[in-house]
Design a protein around this nucleic acid. Sequence first.
DNA 1: CTGAAAGCGCTTACAG
DNA 2: CTGAAAGCGCTTACAG
Lengths: 344, 344
Amino acid sequence: MAVTIKDIAKMADVSPSTVSRVVDENPRISKKTSEKVKRVMQEMDYHPNMLARSLARKDTKIIGTLMPGTEENAFKHPFFPEILRGVTSEAYKSGYNILISSAATPSDEKKIVLDFAKNGVAEGLILMTSRHNDTVIKALTEISFPFVLVGNPENSSNVTWVDNDNIEAGRKLTEHFISRGCRKIAFIGLTDEYLVVKDRFEGYRKALGESGIEFDKGLVVKGAFMRSNGGNMMSELLSRKKDFSGIVAADDDMAFDAIKVLKKAGIRVPQDVLVAGFNNTKMDDYFTPMLTSIDINAFELGRKAFQLIRAKIENKDYKPTHELVGINIVPRESTSRNFKGSTE
Amino acid sequence: MAVTIKDIAKMADVSPSTVSRVVDENPRISKKTSEKVKRVMQEMDYHPNMLARSLARKDTKIIGTLMPGTEENAFKHPFFPEILRGVTSEAYKSGYNILISSAATPSDEKKIVLDFAKNGVAEGLILMTSRHNDTVIKALTEISFPFVLVGNPENSSNVTWVDNDNIEAGRKLTEHFISRGCRKIAFIGLTDEYLVVKDRFEGYRKALGESGIEFDKGLVVKGAFMRSNGGNMMSELLSRKKDFSGIVAADDDMAFDAIKVLKKAGIRVPQDVLVAGFNNTKMDDYFTPMLTSIDINAFELGRKAFQLIRAKIENKDYKPTHELVGINIVPRESTSRNFKGSTE
DNA sequence: CTGAAAGCGCTTACAG
DNA sequence: CTGAAAGCGCTTACAG
């Protein structure tokens, strides 16, 4: 059987209360007693039982995270692990542990989350994903269980969240094209479904405006935010027979597929058209040409998310707030002006 | 305050013991009582406190996982998330939760793990990584805390583990080259450091032997198991001026870099030389040419790992064992014989 | 079939 | 500075 506080108390010839206080570094305990108890704890290899402590104290130092459903493709997106890494790394510093959970499908999520919120294990929750008309967020808000969303909520008034400044991201990437001399810049992958994309698009328009370039909606292609459509959208754009020298894709995967279609059509990237996307996927370095992209700093998103949830937990009347994580542009071959041809 | 078993007892006019038994679906409770209690639980939105239950029962339904250090590159390897996804998905089915922890550096690991093992929260541990002379495994074995390793331990006698059949993987991939008519097949990235690689190499030799191809150690290039070296190893091989028509790389990343060097040297893949790797990275589809690879089924590794740890926990004298997860070859352009040239 | 009571391993207000 | 005692919210052997 594991060593308990009672065993230590007996060996050290003090009361359990005293041992508990030593463990807790309570300053009221005399140095002498404290040292004696500590020695005994060492000798007996005592590790406090966290369950008992949590039950008595009503805190657990455990934060839950809700990942996208294991059956969903979202889970496979490379930035979830990065976010998780950020969360874990930050949690580690302050002695918190991270519990991950994930329903198979969105419909199971609410049940899981509510149970999570009420079964006493997690003190707070980090949501990795938000949906249109999110019932999870609503439920959590109703019972006022502390949570932080990574991403931008539909109704941001009452929720604490971290996200990138997606408008800024769109603006910066578009400026990059402009600085390379492009004036006819297309945007592919616009959708109403995701705020991220709408924001990136807004940034795109902003950049155009700031440079006095007239917005041409003939250069915008709408489409679902899914990889498989990058190619179709590119074909659509080509079929319009419009002139363009740059393409902002709503994310890297779309950019890859768009470039494939361009190649087939005999249009060279970057010699004929510059292309770039968002997310700074690992693949960007391996694609031909290497893809210019916006790094969203997923690790930092995770860190910030943890800091916020911790703040909420430790300060019950912490007001809903949000933080924006900076982005960086990573220029690569696909927008290079002195590209000597690919390495093949 | 949260609703407790006492509140339910009072409302339903029974004793707390009875409520507890209803929650536990104890068949000794009369249907009538059970229904009454359940109704009250519904009405009051009762969720059992897991901490209290765990403390009393001495089980927590929580499994810990040790990821590679957050500061290590390993954490970024795309198969960790996949493994985790497998673990989580399987855990969900049986109502277990997964706690992730990760030291910053290997030296912190032992402390974390031992505390984990003794603080009563996790009933078992899944280790995602093993090291040369692994002190974590040793410590866990000494205190006989249940754990399962994903990967192959140095000293496999006393540990339960899941891994791919890496010998089979090496064999299958090499056979693939042979079936394409290659007889002079190089192997780059051999190292003593990792058993995975040694096994893949063993499979390579096996396949050669089975086809009566003489092994030529002049076609083997040693090198650390790190991406950055794929290019160097390729250069080394080229400098030997040996003839070869196929290259087995110790993993996909090495294959990518090797191909880049080949391209620079004016050697075409697959027209002049076939190349393939291991892991079936997402990038394989985006690289030019698309890379043939061995899929290691990381999701399945995770699932199996969970099943094993659960078996160990629920059956205390479960004997150390291991399971091998099958692999699949995924043929792509880089080993295609009727490749019409890339899409560019 | 149901309940009273002891116990899981801690914490902490109260008393001294 | 230290201890006795009650309590955190459950479970379960025992008794009936």
